[in-house]
Design a protein around this nucleic acid. Structure first.
Lengths: 131, 131
DNA sequence: CTGTATCCCATATGATACTG
DNA sequence: CAGTATCATATGGGATACAG
């Protein structure tokens, strides 16, 4: 755990994997690596929210992708989906306890991104300037 | 920083962004979210390595994607590329200091993935069983 | 050995219209 | 309001052949 050789071994083990892999890293990354999953997790960190609220807070997501991403997060046990039997229906989404632990695990990455954003951008400029 | 409201604000700020965004989260995720970046960072954590070595350790990456991913990582200042003027040429890749700090920031996520892999897989099974 | 160019396909995402 | 269906498109990524 945390041991790099172990990680590498697992990564290689995951090569040529079938549908849903053996390698936990790839498995988790496949869910988180898409365009919206992480952003939704961050949004949901503030508490349970309805479909429409999320949509408004993320103006450039399509209805289709919001539905789909929320379904995947639910399927993976990171988010709960609660239908309130009103007319018209309202549906609330919230992080599960495991969703919250994932959020914690994402904290350092978040901080890294903010702390190094300038560095990354200037690296790009320098790189593009050469060539 | 680390404050969720701030994060959300930044995410929204990034909406409808131009080429290379204002939002550090999206900016970093775009680089890390592809199929190979994180895996290469983990591999390079073990030390500088040549193109061919990396290729052998990641049997299912195409030459094209290896080149491309390494170039992007280099462009973002996470990896250095050193050409040794031998015949034939040999090229070594290594993490930069910033690459190593990113690696550290990724540690918790790695651990989460391992710790919760079983949970995620059983969640999926349960979800798929219903419907 | 390392890297580029080309061609091709699968998939992810978006736009729009429709339904309970 | 929340979700589905359909169509269209962009992009990611693989295979292969070639080049310095």
């Amino acid at each position: 755990m945390g041991d790099i050789d172990t990680v590498v071994a697992r990564i290689q083990q995951g090569n040529g994997r079938p549908a849903e892999g053996v390698c936990p890293i790839r498995d988790v990354l496949d869910q988180l690596g898409d365009k919206w999953s992480m952003l939704l997790i961050f949004l949901l960190a503030a508490g349970a929210q309805r479909f429409g609220e999320l949509r408004r807070k993320l103006p450039d997501i399509s209805q289709r992708m919001l539905t789909q991403t929320l379904r995947d997060l639910t399927r993976n046990g990171l988010v709960t989906r609660t239908v309130h039997p009103t007319r018209p229906p309202s549906v609330e989404y919230a992080l599960t306890p495991q969703g919250f632990t994932l959020l914690d695990a994402l904290g350092p990455l978040l901080r890294w991104a903010e702390d190094h954003h300038d560095y990354v951008r200037s690296s790009r400029r320098r790189f593009d300037a050469e060539a």
